[in-house]
Simulated scan of single mutants.
Amino acid sequence: MISESGLEFFTSQVALTRPDVVSVIPQPERMPFYDKSSKLCHHTFDQLLVHVGGSRTAVAVKPYDGVIQTGFRETLSIIAGQLSKSFADRVCLVTDRSFTRVQIFNAAMFVDF
């Protein structure tokens, strides 16, 4: 699994322990969206989870402090509202506060086995 950060790697490890996740696609294609001032922008999700049954979740992985400082939740909400259903059915934000060290350790052990 290729990851740009430790947080992305941990997120993929935790995702792979879920029985409803078939695969984790790192850094899927970038998605166009219009920001609140109607400017064309692009966003690349950190991961795309493919679930049993074919549904998909686009995952943004960000440090919690950066999410708060930049107002990323609002941006992600705008992106989610414009996201093509052919790309993903839902959007999820994961931060360093989304799981504990124990969950990360257990997920890594599970995936290793």
Rank of each mutant, 00 (worst) to 15 (best):
L49N: 04
F9I: 11
Q47C: 11
V24T: 09
R30K: 07
P32E: 01
R30V: 01
P63I: 02
V14H: 02
R30I: 02
Q13S: 13
I68V: 15
V22W: 01
Y64H: 09
S38R: 07
T17P: 06
R18I: 01
S37Q: 00
P19L: 10
G66C: 10
R73M: 13
D35T: 03
T70C: 09
G66A: 12
V59Y: 00
H51E: 14
K36S: 10
Y34C: 08
L48G: 06
T70A: 12
D65N: 07
V22M: 07
L48K: 13
V21P: 02
V21H: 00
Y64A: 15
Y64M: 08
H42T: 14
T44Q: 09
D65K: 06
H51Q: 14
Y64L: 09
T70W: 06
P32Q: 01
V67C: 02
A15M: 09
P26R: 06
A15W: 01
Q13G: 07
H51F: 12
A15D: 14
L40Q: 13
V14E: 04
T70M: 11
A60G: 04
L40G: 05
T57M: 14
V52E: 15
Q69C: 05
V22K: 03
Y34R: 15
D35W: 03
Q13N: 12
V52G: 10
L16T: 11
G6T: 12
Q27R: 13
L16V: 05
Q47S: 10
V21L: 00
V59E: 01
G6H: 11
Q13V: 12
P26H: 08
G66Q: 11
V50H: 06
L7D: 00
G53F: 08
H51K: 14
K39P: 09
V61Y: 01
G53K: 11
R18L: 03
S55R: 12
I68F: 01
H43T: 08
H51Y: 14
V67T: 05
G53M: 08
S12L: 12
A15K: 09
D20V: 03
I25P: 06
